[in-house]
């Protein structure tokens, strides 16, 4: 079921990408500001294949800006972002689209197309990327993605008929249907009740194990961080303030780090 030829759990190997890229996402001295608001000043981070990295930060610390820079929705003012061996900022439009097909992005607000049914939502990226050939193949992929998130029977519903947690799952299914190599999660548990949030956290873990994807997770929810993170990076003052495993940061002496773990 899962294409295990694509990635390996070994952290240092980066198969399929350029020879220089041992990390799937490489952020070097990224800066981004909106007017006088310097959101990112000097941020550097590496994401290894098959690894879940959580970027932790307070609201308004520029976490969402960071992922949007990675996916190419925003262009950094300075610094370099390399994704799967490609410099995102310098890619032409078509190549950027091709690169994006290998990335998944789970929006904070789910961003389900509310004029379409769940099935059409899932078919949209599939058709746009010319991934499927023939209706039966499409149908198989849709059903599989829905089964992956445990909502196999919602294909003909409209997004508005679903609960918040179900919508998050459908959004994840829409991300998964293209078999991304990296998934970017923008605040996956925000706005959900703790129980549903935990379900989503487990789902993120399941996806990582099943498809062996790397993930960059933006969050300020400590439950989510604890359950999903292989590594945690703390974003503060526009830079990577601290980095390590959950436990390492929990023991960190700096009070600015500590305040998250209270």
């Amino acid at each position: 079921m899962l294409p295990d030829s694509r990635t390996q759990p070994d952290a240092d190997a980066a198969p399929g990408s350029g020879p220089a890229a041992e990390a799937v996402v490489r952020l070097e001295h990224v800066a981004k500001s909106f007017g006088n608001n310097h959101v990112l000043r000097d941020f550097s981070l590496l994401v290894q294949p098959g690894q879940n990295v959580v970027v932790l930060g307070k609201s308004g610390s520029g976490k969402s800006v960071l992922v949007k820079c990675i996916i190419g929705l925003l262009r950094p003012d300075a610094g370099r972002i390399t994704v799967l061996g490609h410099d995102v900022a310098s890619l032409p439009h078509d190549a950027l689209d091709q690169l994006r097909a290998r990335l998944g992005f789970l929006f904070q607000s789910n961003a389900l197309y509310d004029s379409m049914t769940v099935r059409e939502n899932l078919l949209f990226p599939l058709r746009r990327q010319w991934m499927a050939h023939g209706r039966s193949e499409e149908e198989t992929l849709v059903q599989q993605a829905l089964d992956d998130v445990g909502l196999g029977d919602t294909a003909d519903k409209m997004p508005a008929e679903l609960s918040g947690g179900m919508r998050k799952r459908i959004a994840l299914a829409r991300t998964l249907i293209l078999r991304p190599e990296i998934i970017l999660y923008d605040e996956p548990t925000t706005g959900l009740d703790p129980v549903t949030g935990r379900e989503i956290d487990h789902l993120i873990r399941d996806v990582q194990q099943k498809y062996n994807t790397a993930a960059l997770i933006i969050s300020h929810d400590m439950d989510c961080v604890r359950l999903t993170a292989d590594r945690v990076a703390l974003l503060a003052e526009g830079r990577c303030y601290a980095e390590g495993t959950y436990e390492q940061l929990q023991q960190h002496p700096d009070p600015r780090v500590n305040e998250f773990f209270i």
Binding site: R100, Q108, A111, P125, R128, Q129
Partner: peptide, 21 residues
């Protein structure tokens, strides 16, 4: 209203991310 709500709920970004202009 349609494009506005698509913009607000990030559907336009989602479209761009899924390889559609």
């Amino acid at each position: 209203a349609e494009l506005g709500s698509m913009r607000v709920t990030e559907q336009i970004d989602a479209m761009e991310v899924s390889g559609t202009n």
